[in-house]
């Protein structure tokens, strides 16, 4: 190789190699990672490790000693139907949130795509719920959705009758209402990511489509949506997996009721922990951890595959 290169070329290549080596070492020395890594280890890895260990003990608030009990906690958990019910509710909730949040986020992004002054202001308005406390959002909606709350008041004013729909009191539909509240809170984030995704689409491609006579809808379906794949991956994965860990919005609106129909696994864990059954609560959170992991890998792999068109 070097034989056909001039001496100058060789020097240049060497310089680049050196620069790369040096740059790699000097710009980002590995020990820069230590502070972040230390925080991650102390607040994430070690607790997760403990999570695996305490699940096999009889740790509780009633005794000072902690002893290993093997898989006893798992056996009891799976024998009582409550865990499976909570898992089922959690999955339904996560799917509902993923669908609603992405649908709302995408619609908002498309509506507010152009960089006008009004659109900028409206984007900020829709992003505000994202930075609000989830508990506060939950309590506000709980007040709005009461039988004598503001929503029924407005409906009553429009229809001219006395409306007392218990929005949070239906054992079938309340989970949908709560998922909508959760999605409302987070849709601003999805919107932002879809907006960023839309901005990365090359204007030339869209112009070519326009010249070919493609309608707005065809452009969206055939070109823009497929090109949004990375944004979809991120949004669907974070919405689905984030809401599997959901707690605050549901706790503030329904506390798992009515009749246990919105009892997410985390609410069940919270209740068990509050009873002083620390080991059992830990076992449940291990089950949740595994459930999220089992779901996360295939899902992300599938979504990443969609990005191959890029």
């Amino acid at each position: 190789m070097t034989a056909v290169m001039s001496r100058q070329d060789v020097v240049r290549v060497e310089d680049i190699r050196k620069a790369k080596r040096r740059g790699g070492k000097n710009d980002h020395p590995l020990w820069f990672l230590i502070p972040a890594l230390a925080v991650l280890v102390v607040f994430f890895f070690i607790p997760t490790l403990f999570n695996f260990i305490y699940a096999f003990t009889n740790w509780s608030s009633f005794k000072s000693s902690i002893g290993f009990v093997g898989v006893d906690n798992f056996v009891t958990l799976f024998n009582s139907g409550t865990l499976l019910n909570a898992l089922r509710v959690t999955l339904i909730y996560a799917v509902l949130v993923a669908v609603f949040q992405n649908l709302f986020g995408l619609i908002l992004a498309l509506l507010l795509e152009r960089d006008t002054r009004v659109n900028r202001a409206v984007r900020v308005a829709f992003f505000i719920p994202v930075i609000m406390s989830a508990l506060a959002v939950g309590y506000i909606f709980q007040a709005l959705l009461k039988p004598e709350g503001a929503l029924n008041g407005i409906l009553g004013f429009i229809t001219g009758t006395d409306v007392t729909i218990p929005w949070l009191g239906d054992t079938t539909w309340t989970i949908v209402v709560v998922a909508l509240v959760h999605s409302w809170k987070w849709m601003g984030l999805s919107m932002l990511i879809y907006l960023a995704g839309l901005k990365t689409i090359n204007d030339d491609v869209l112009e070519a489509a326009r010249l070919d006579g493609a309608s707005w809808w065809t452009t969206l379906r055939e070109i823009r949506f497929p090109l949004l794949a990375p944004a979809v991956t991120f949004n669907v994965a974070t919405a689905l997996l984030g809401s599997m860990n959901g707690f605050d919005v549901v706790q503030a609106t329904t506390e798992g009721g009515p009749g246990g129909s919105t009892e997410l696994l985390n609410i069940f864990i919270f209740r068990t922990f509050g009873q002083g059954l620390f080991a059992q609560a830990t076992t449940m959170s291990l089950v949740l951890f595994l459930a999220v992991a089992v779901l996360a890998f295939p899902l992300i792999k599938m979504l990443r595959k969609r990005e191959d068109v890029l």
């Binding site: 009191g169 054992t171 009721g257 009515p258 009749g259 246990g260 129909s261 209740r271 009873q275």
Partner: peptide, 15 residues
Amino acid sequence: PDLYIFLADMIQGTK
């Protein structure tokens, strides 16, 4: 035990 929660479930018709 959480007797009150289970009774509330009964009132809602889920238990």
